[in-house]
Design a protein around this nucleic acid. Sequence first.
DNA 1: AAAACCTCCAACCGCCAAGCG
DNA 2: TCGCTTGGCGGTTGGAGGTTT
Length: 260
Amino acid sequence: MATKRMRQSYDTSSVVRKGAWTAEEDTLLKNCIEKFGEGKWHLVPLRAGLNRCRKSCRLRWLNYLRPNIKRGDFGEDEVDLMLRLHKLLGNRWALIAGRIPGRTANDVKNYWNTHIKSRLKKPKEQHNDGEPSKHTMVTIIKPQPRTISKSLKLYSNIQSHATHNLTTSSNIGISQNLYNVSPDVVPSPALHVDKINEYLDELFDDRENEIHDEVGWPFGGFLAEEDGLDVVKDVDNDQNSLFAFPIDDVDMLDLLSIDD
DNA sequence: AAAACCTCCAACCGCCAAGCG
DNA sequence: TCGCTTGGCGGTTGGAGGTTT
C-alpha cells in the first residue's frame, strides 16, 4: 500500500517508472514474490508485470512489503540494542537490523539519523563552552560483508534463505582466523542460526566488558549522551577485517560445522 | 491565516563484491 | 583475465506533514 509520505517526482517519460509505489504496484509485487519467492530480482519486473527496475522492486519488498515488518516507533529495548550494536559495528545498518526483529536496515538507518545522531551531537556542542572534553574513543568493529569460505564444510549445507543472503569468497585465510560470519549469513537449519546468534551474543558481551574495562563506563542503555560519548573513532580502516580483535577463543569452524 | 521552518522516511543513487561466460 | 550482470549496501535526497513564528 502506498503511504502518505510519497515521492512524486518520478519521471513519467522514462521507460522505467520511478517514485512512489501505488497500491496496485504493491499488490503485483507481493503476488509475484509469493508465487516465485525472493531472489532473481532481474526477473521480478517481468514476472510481476511492473514497470520498475529490479532495484526498486527489491527495495520495496525488503523495506515495506515483506511480512513481519514492524511499523511505528522503536521501543526502548530496540533503541538500546541499536546503540549497543552500533558501537560494535558502526554504520552497518543491515547487520544491526538483522539483530532487531522486524526492523529493516532502512528503518534503523532512518531512526539513527533522525533520532540518535542528533542527540549524540549535543554533548559535543556543550564542550565548546570551555568545559574539558570527555571524548571517548571507541573501536568500531567492521565486519566484512557476508563472506565465507567455500571450502568450509558448512557451505554445502547452506542454502539460500528468503530473507538472508550468502556470498562466498575463495580467498579467506583460514589459518588467520579470518572467518567472516555475519548475522545475515544463516546456515540452515535453524539450529545453526542459534549457534551463530549465541556466538554473537558472547562476542558482544565480551566486547562490552572489554570496552567497559577500557573506558570505565557501562555498555548499553542511553549511555551515549549521558556519558559524553561524542566521538566515535573508526580505528580500523581495513574494510576486510571482520573484527578489530582476533577470534582466538572461539573456533568458528567448530561452531559452524554441521554433523551430517 | 499563512509563511517559514522542522521532522520524518520512502525511495533513489552510486558503489562494491561475487558470479559467470 | 576481462567485462558484464546481479545482488546488496550505505549515503543522500526531497516531499509530505507537522510545528513554530
